[in-house]
Simulated scan of single mutants.
Amino acid sequence: MSESTEATNLTELIQTMEQMERDAPRVSVDDIVNAVGRRSFGPLLLIAGLITLAPIIGDIPGMPTLMAALVLLVSTQLLAGRKTFWLPKWLLNRSVSRKGFDKAIHALKKPAQWIDNLLGVRLKWMTGYAGIRATALACLLVALAMPPMEFIPFSANGAGLALTLFGLGLVARDGLVLSLGFLITTATFVAILMYLL
């Protein structure tokens, strides 16, 4: 499949995923990565966040950890300066049912239009070289914390929300949304520390 034009908002990203091949009974990580493009850090983060947040898919045991592996690999490669992202076969072959995937995508359509109306090009310096590296570092920390979060009530939702905001901020070039992502990341880690102490 050829590289698609990179989405500039949530609605376009959902449309990209809707246009994927519909014959197969399951949707793999490879299908999604091919649809959004292997150079697309923002969309990959956004998808990982949305999948972690989605009740239909994100509640599958091990799914937050799988998304953490995706974010960890992509963030590390971005920090290392790679232009395209390599992902291992075992991760690319992981899949969910087409029915569950389509149901989650359909549920996101209405909120996506509302969210897109809130986005704009703000605090543009945060979406430049240094801002993207700082975001990648924050995502790396979130990804490392996600596997144990599966055992702490609601903490994976905080991680999913942070990744979603980071992805949205990068896709829409919205530094204000990136700032919210950093705020949610900090709040999630503070909540986990308070829970553990």
Rank of each mutant, 00 (worst) to 15 (best):
L108Q: 06
R39L: 02
G160F: 00
M20F: 05
S97K: 15
G167F: 05
V36A: 04
G175Q: 02
V71P: 04
L197A: 15
M146Q: 05
P55Q: 14
M194L: 15
L53A: 03
L45D: 09
L180R: 08
V36E: 08
I14G: 06
F166H: 02
S155V: 12
L13H: 09
T76M: 02
K124E: 14
I184V: 14
L118K: 13
W86H: 15
L50G: 09
L140K: 01
L73Q: 15
T76R: 11
L44E: 05
G160E: 04
V74P: 11
M17R: 06
I60K: 09
P147M: 15
D31L: 07
A24G: 02
G131P: 03
I56R: 15
V33T: 11
D116W: 13
A7K: 00
T135I: 12
L66F: 12
A145H: 03
E3A: 13
I56S: 15
M1A: 07
V36R: 06
K109E: 12
R122E: 14
V74D: 02
L44N: 07
D23W: 00
T16N: 01
K99W: 07
A145S: 07
K109N: 09
V96G: 13
P64I: 06
A130L: 12
Q77V: 06
L144P: 01
V177Y: 10
A7C: 03
N157I: 12
L53V: 03
T186Q: 02
Q19S: 06
T185N: 10
K103V: 13
R173G: 11
T188F: 03
L46V: 05
